[in-house]
Design a binder for these strands. Structure first.
Length: 724
DNA sequence: TTGTTCCAGCTTTTT
DNA sequence: GCTGGAACAA
């Protein structure tokens, strides 16, 4: 047995963690301190030295990427297959449990997973049926409320009807939403976790089964767990003290989406005998960078406390550049990158990190202007694209006719003459009879309660889906997808669409067939569940990773949040200004301010060799010129670590932007005049306010007595000149 | 069905 | 000040 491979590459603290006895263990892992290595080697140790079967191990992460990496590294280290080991995201594992035990979880066998945009659509439709004004009940806010409740493990039935009208209405919406999901077999992300928790909690036999199976439970990024996730972990580990959690309270940056840093403290309280191991030796950054990071994070209260150190050298000072404006800032950064590349540095070792996505633009422009390849992270992922979602909706509908959200999505995509009024009737019947849109449509057709045209169109649609389902039955997964893409009419629809990037969309649809092929090849499916349902869930749960296309040597642009877990030799932290970073919305609340500070800590510790911080003396924000102060975080870096860049890379005081605005030209050919009284057959009497355009394009703005101000095309509107 | 105008909103993001 | 979505005119 070769344990040197497992033990030798570790430092003392890491080794202590890896070889720790099976007891509640908290590994406080600073940035760049080898956190993943500890998890991987710990699992390897348990298998190779303690003789555990991979079958007995559970490892939970937050992202698919992290899960994949962990599995890969374990396989590499041990050279054994790991398919029997449960490694995955909280959501992925919850999903697996629910699929396995759909019946006990009171879910239909082919329940569907909704992603957040699906969820938002459902909520919008729900508000509509409840006849609530979206302005008063913003769908986003409703979504936030519902997800918040689920994260806390609260269902509608747990909430007492209070007196606060707002709360009462929210509760009513939540209840209606739950009903809808129940009826149509839809499960959102929060529901996956909540349902999985309830499943184990309410079924002692099942719980005992999994408790006996998972002898060791490992949790990555524990500071990001929310209430229900931690509750779920505790259920599984009851009486066993077999939780091995790794996290860093200083890198908790997701409080705003329900992460409870308190879970770290509760863990310590609930396991008084727990083992606490701090990983403080950093293998990533220079001592200068670490000193800056330590000094900033020290400003926060209530930390468990640790200090990063390294035995590598001081390295270069931190450059701070005060830009004249945001263009100058971009210019400076791009110049620096050019110098780096000229000295033989790789572009992919360089990252530009910003607080908000909107900041990427000026950097993109400058990079483009200098022909520097770059890649912006974030944005639409493959499975989030409308054309992909449409294809998936057909597949879902084939698998589950009760999926109203998918029904709505594709009933008239591509257009087949099923208009809003027909749909409204269908919805109404569905509501009255408490059935799905599918069933309502079928009965409406049977009873001949629709116009012949609407009835036929609807019938064509239902038959299309039925036919697809029938034809797909015997096919391989990728053939099913191919069938749907081609026979639904989607592909043809996008191919003929010349204006709206239709070609690209058609290509994406073809790519979807490939994705299905790949999925099929990689899928283990130990529980032999329907592959189509698994693929659909995969699309919702793992929407990223499809865009890892070009391997070109690129500069990396991303938000500070998405940089977590990554490292770069040269890091630019830009826009480090009060109001931007920390964000204006966070400065009045100490808790949120501290989270911003942790974000700053995360940003700084991404840098391996060189860190460059920039701020601008003036910045255009929401269309207004602002003159922000340098961020307070800058002052928290000891001055001796900083080298201010004095020279202006480029004095780019912009020439005063011309105030010229083309005025709306008054049409000379018109027979109408300003102030002219006219009358319109539909809108009645009014007075001309403005004229523009010529000939067929000529338009007039008219203030109508009855209906107010409107723009009308003169060539269409039949206006009568009135005396007056 | 399509093209235009209007209007709110505006941190961070994974699953 | 820009952008995406809703509302509206044709």
């Amino acid at each position: 047995m070769d344990i040197t491979k497992i033990i030798d590459p570790l430092n003392d603290a890491q080794r202590q963690a890896v070889t720790a006895p099976s007891t509640a263990t908290l590994v406080l892992a600073g940035a760049g301190s080898g956190k993943t290595r500890v998890l991987v080697h710990r699992i390897a140790w348990q298998i190779q030295v303690l003789g555990l079967s991979p079958h007995n191990i559970l490892a939970v992460t937050f992202t698919n990427k992290a899960a994949k990496e962990m599995r890969g590294r374990i396989e590499e280290l041990l050279n054994i297959p790991t398919y029997s080991m449960w490694i995955g995201t909280f959501h992925g594992i919850a999903h697996r449990l629910l699929r396995r035990h759909a019946q006990q979880a009171k879910l239909p066998e082919s329940f569907q997973v909704m992603d957040s945009s699906d969820q938002l659509r459902v909520i919008k439709r729900l508000l509509n049926t409840l006849q609530l004004d979206e302005a008063k009940w913003p769908p986003k806010q409703v979504q936030w409320h519902i997800n918040g409740q689920k994260d806390e493990g609260i269902r509608a039935k747990h909430t007492r009807e209070g007196h606060d009208p707002y709360q009462r209405q929210m509760l009513a919406i939540y209840r209606a939403y739950e009903d809808f999901c129940e009826r149509s077999g839809m499960v959102d992300f929060g529901e996956l976790l909540l349902r999985a928790h309830e499943l184990l909690r309410d079924d002692p036999e099942l719980l005992a089964f999994y408790q006996q199976r998972f002898l060791q439970i490992h949790v990555d990024e524990f500071q990001d767990t929310n209430t229900i996730q931690y509750a779920w972990l505790r259920l599984l580990s009851t009486d066993k003290d077999n939780l091995f959690v790794v996290g860093d309270d200083d890198q908790s940056i997701y409080g705003w989406r329900g992460a409870k840093i308190e879970n770290l403290y509760s863990f310590q309280k609930q396991h008084p005998q727990h083992l606490l191991i701090k990983l403080e030796q950093n293998y990533r950054s220079t001592s200068t960078i670490l000193k800056a990071a330590n000094s900033i994070i020290a400003q926060n209260d209530g930390r468990i406390g640790k200090e990063l150190w390294t035995d590598s050298g001081d390295g270069e000072a931190i450059s701070v550049y005060s830009a004249f404006n945001e263009l100058d800032e971009a210019y400076f950064v791009v110049e620096r990158i050019r110098a780096w590349v000229n000295q033989g540095g790789a572009r992919s070792d360089v990252a530009i990190l910003y607080r908000s996505n909107a900041q990427s633009r000026q950097f993109e422009e400058k990079l483009m202007a200098t022909n520097t390849p770059y890649r912006v992270y974030g944005g639409l992922r493959f499975f989030d694209r409308a054309e992909i979602k449409n294809a998936m909706a057909y597949l879902r509908l084939m698998s589950n006719h009760g999926d109203d959200a998918s029904f709505e999505r594709v009933v008239n995509t591509p257009t087949r003459g099923i208009g809003a009024s027909t749909l409204e009737i269908v919805r109404q019947v569905a509501r009255e009879q408490g059935v799905s849109l599918w069933v309502a449509s079928a009965s409406l057709i049977d009873q001949g309660r629709l116009s012949a045209r609407a009835s036929n169109a609807l019938k064509t649609f239902l038959q299309l889906v039925l036919r697809l389902a029938e034809q797909a039955e015997a096919l391989e997964l990728f053939e099913k997808v191919k069938l749907v893409v081609e026979s639904s009419g989607l592909l043809a629809f996008y191919k003929q669409d010349k204006v709206d990037k239709g070609e690209e969309k058609a290509e994406n649809l073809e790519e979807l067939v490939n994705a299905a092929k790949l999925f099929d090849a990689n899928q283990e499916n130990p529980d032999s569940l329907p592959e189509l349902d698994l693929f659909l869930a995969y699309a919702a749960l793992e929407s990223g990773d499809m865009q890892a296309d070009d391997f070109e040597d690129c500069v990396q642009l991303m938000t500070l949040h998405s940089a977590k877990g990554l490292e770069f030799k040269l890091v630019f932290m830009v826009g480090v200004e009060e109001g931007l970073f920390p964000s204006q919305q966070s400065v009045d609340d100490i808790g949120r301010l501290e989270e911003e500070r942790r974000l700053c800590y995360v940003g700084i510790t991404r840098a391996m060799q060189q860190l460059c911080v920039t701020y601008s003396e003036s910045r255009r924000l929401y269309g207004r010129e602002s003159y922000p102060k340098p961020s307070r975080f800058l002052k928290e870096i000891p001055a001796e670590l900083i080298q201010e860049v004095r020279i202006r890379a480029h004095v780019s005081r912009p020439a005063a932007v011309s105030a010229y605005k083309p005025e709306r030209l008054t049409s000379s050919t018109s027979s109408y005049k300003l102030g002219q009284r006219v009358s319109h057959e539909k809108f009645g009497e009014g007075i001309i306010l403005q004229l523009e355009g010529d000939g067929a394009q000529e338009r007039v703005q008219i203030n109508f007595k009855q209906v107010g101000v409107k723009w009308l095309m003169l060539s269409y509107a039949k206006l009568q000149v009135m005396a007056g």
